[in-house]
Nucleic acid binder design. Structure first.
Lengths: 171, 171
DNA sequence: CCTAGCATGTAATACGTTACATGATTCA
DNA sequence: TGAATCATGTAACGTATTACATGCTAGG
């Protein structure tokens, strides 16, 4: 009924995992879901209010010293909404890769420039894979499948571009 | 200077490959760049006008019978802008995968429901891989690296989820 | 004392989709 | 004759980022 927006789903999900402040949500999305579903302050705070207004979360003030702090907790209605979404079969998938787009327009460039582009892409994916791995170690990641997906995906990309690099540098 | 918007880049690139109408651009993005950079009419037509106003493309009317038709061609300034963008090192990469997000919130579900989700995901990626392959055959794809990337990515995803499925169904 | 981090929020802007309106042509 | 495709366009809406404003607290 309430038909959650994409960002509302992330937020509601995180609150369903445990009580959270808006700041918490930003921190968590930045370090974990960022790569496949991010959120910015400009959405988080207004969205939390909307969710509260719709009765899906409850808020209470829990200041730390004199720092005001508003902690959100899931309600039964909120739990139902999350569950309903999680069981829904409709699934958005979207990839926006400017590097790929540049590769698509490769014939507008000199072969050497294309090769440079591919090389940079490979290096970038290698760095990303390393970054994900570090992130996992910091979080002492239990058996986080999603994090593993991130590492695996970046590694696969690095390998794919390495193969293309090979092919291009031979011809 | 003109600082192209993401969609402007796709459009300008396509016009740089050859004269195109707005309709052409929609058709092409729908069948090729769609998966990693799409565009809708609501952007294409206004953006073409903006690009014309900025002197990056030129327009002329080439009606087919009584069907009005506006064909856009790249200008030297437009060519410079495309080239500049293609050689730029800053590269946006963004993935939005609702399935992954659901997996991330897996602990809110029963194990059986997670398994179902993973199974559906695998099936979806398998279908996507097949779709991409067909697309390539229709286009009699020469050696389109980007299309190959699409097929490979979908296949890799299907395999990744198949492995997870195995792991989950054993425990 | 100063910096980094905790904490909340909004206004302006940018980006993008959906739905609709309009009309010609081609082909079954 | 009716459906599909070619073809252009806009208004309303939804979604998201950026940049800014504000202020407390802990630790070097």
């Amino acid at each position: 009924m309430s038909s959650l927006t994409p960002t509302a789903r992330v937020i509601l999900g995180l609150v369903a995992l445990g009580p959270r402040t808006g700041y918490d949500i930003k921190r968590i999305t930045d370090s974990s879901t960022r790569f496949f579903w991010g959120a910015s302050y400009g959405q988080i705070y207004p969205e939390l209010k909307r969710l509260e207004h719709d009765g899906l979360v409850e808020a209470r003030d829990e200041p730390r010293g004199r720092v005001r702090r508003r902690v959100y907790t899931i309600t039964p209605a909120g739990e139902r909404a999350v569950r309903e979404w999680l069981l829904d079969h409709e699934t958005a998938y979207e990839l926006r890769d400017e590097g790929l787009l540049r590769l698509f327009f490769g014939e507008l460039l000199q072969p050497d420039d294309v090769l440079d582009l591919v090389r940079r892409r490979r290096a970038w994916f290698e760095r990303s894979a390393a970054l994900f791995r570090e992130l996992g170690e910091q979080l002492e990641a239990q058996d986080d499948d999603v994090l593993r997906y991130g590492v695996d995906l970046m590694k696969w990309n690095a390998a794919w571009f390495a193969r293309l690099e090979q092919r291009l540098s031979q011809s």
